[in-house]
Design a protein around this nucleic acid. Structure first.
Lengths: 240, 240
DNA sequence: AAGTGGTCTAGACCACGCG
DNA sequence: GCGTGGTCTAGACCACTTT
């Protein structure tokens, strides 16, 4: 026999299937997945394989397991460095208000980006938007964002799911953050930053340059953050 | 029958056994572990269980797997946030020289520590030491360190394995870092910090407060870092 | 008692690296 | 060709939660 053979791994098929159902809300947050045995039947396989798929989803933060009860779909908010996949609000304990100060628009790539662009990115147009994060009505973070228009369609700010760019990517475009590279510097506030954060020029500011790697080939998200940490330090935990 | 029963999980037994052999150098860095089948025989178990144990060691960064060849013991240098388990040098690309400016000594707990101490820690004496990290003979990081004497014996600076405190913990005391909590602030350099980092008072400095959680119950390592990021920014990558 | 996830057994076949 | 790790099957028994 010929057969379409082994190239597709069964646990990946199951994993991707469930992940997609979660991302599209067919397995809503808070609900329980079908039991491992049910999944076995549906995919005509064994628990070892199903559990392998679920283990991946567990690691990626899509579900949590409750012994004797089931596997529950959870809000995906892994803390993964300084920022979380949920975006900035996840890394701070307070209520955060987000103001889009420059709506998404197409510009030339900004040379301020701290990471080398790929050739495809250089050739593409660039989508840029700027936001300010307020805590207790005080501006705390000024944030610039860039991505390649060729790799991801233009998304307007009012299309953001719950105001979050990352949630939009995950739920509307099935794109996940795979990781990031960051550079941190302590710098004096420039005139523009000082104005937008309502502080004095020269005050110490935490400057973070980020490149998020995504599950979509060719798509990186670039960020440039200016954080006033005098009142609200950046917190971060990690495990293992 | 009674039997000492299930409380000890087999994969944990295997995992701990191998981990200890690695930490004590009986499975040296660069060498290959016995094959999965050999381990099966030694522990009278099946590959599923052995693979589970190895998967853990893989995740924890003790080994890497080479398909068709074996499982290789590697230098444990996971990037885990801003600092690595190898210590500060791992997070910077340059040659780092470490100078112990205050040798380990017993003091009162310093109220500057940004995290609440446990009751056991408060009751215990505190071991403190200070180091400066130089890059190209320029001081870049000033680092204060504290830990509870009750939780870990006094260790002199000249007993540090390859000058590294973390390597000492892992190799001599079989203690691993399980995770950390950090707080980051951008602050103006104080007089003391400015002097030790050879910069002007008031220059922006990245201040990092860290609490490392360890595999030894009750033992936390507290750190207080002042980084001059003008020349050398802090870099950091993460995955998944 | 029934159903769920957690651990484990005893195999099988495949893909990779090397001699 | 042989040994290695990678995937998978078809069960078993246990611990936990719920009815």
């Amino acid at each position: 026999m010929k057969s379409e053979k082994t190239t597709t791994k069964k646990y990946l098929t199951i994993q991707d299937y469930i992940k997609k159902r979660i991302q599209t809300g067919k397995f809503p947050v808070g609900s329980y997945l079908p039991s491992e045995n049910e999944i076995c039947n549906r995919f005509k396989t064994t628990r070892t394989t199903v559990r392998r798929a679920l283990d991946e989803l567990l690691k990626e933060g899509f579900i949590e397991k409750e012994h004797g009860r089931g596997s529950k779909v959870i809000e995906r908010g892994n803390s993964l460095g300084l920022l979380t996949v949920k975006g900035f609000s996840g890394s701070i304990d307070y209520e955060v208000q987000t103001i889009v100060t420059t709506h998404p628009k197409i510009i030339k790539w900004d040379p301020v980006i701290a990471f080398p662009l790929t050739n495809d990115e250089k050739k593409s147009q660039c989508v840029y938007f700027q936001r300010v994060r307020n805590i207790n009505n005080l501006p705390v973070v000024l944030e610039n964002n860039w991505y390649s228009l060729d790799a991801l369609q233009f998304i307007k700010a009012d299309e953001f799911v719950e105001g979050s760019f990352f949630k939009t990517l995950s739920q509307k475009h099935l794109i996940e953050i795979m990781g990031a590279d960051q550079e941190l510097r302590s710098i004096p506030a420039s005139k523009e930053v000082a104005k937008k954060l309502q502080i004095k020029i020269g005050n110490p500011i935490l400057h973070i340059s980020v490149r998020f790697r995504t599950s979509k080939p060719g798509l990186n998200l670039y960020g440039d953050l200016y954080c006033n940490t005098t009142e609200y330090p950046i917190r971060n935990s990690f495990f293992l």
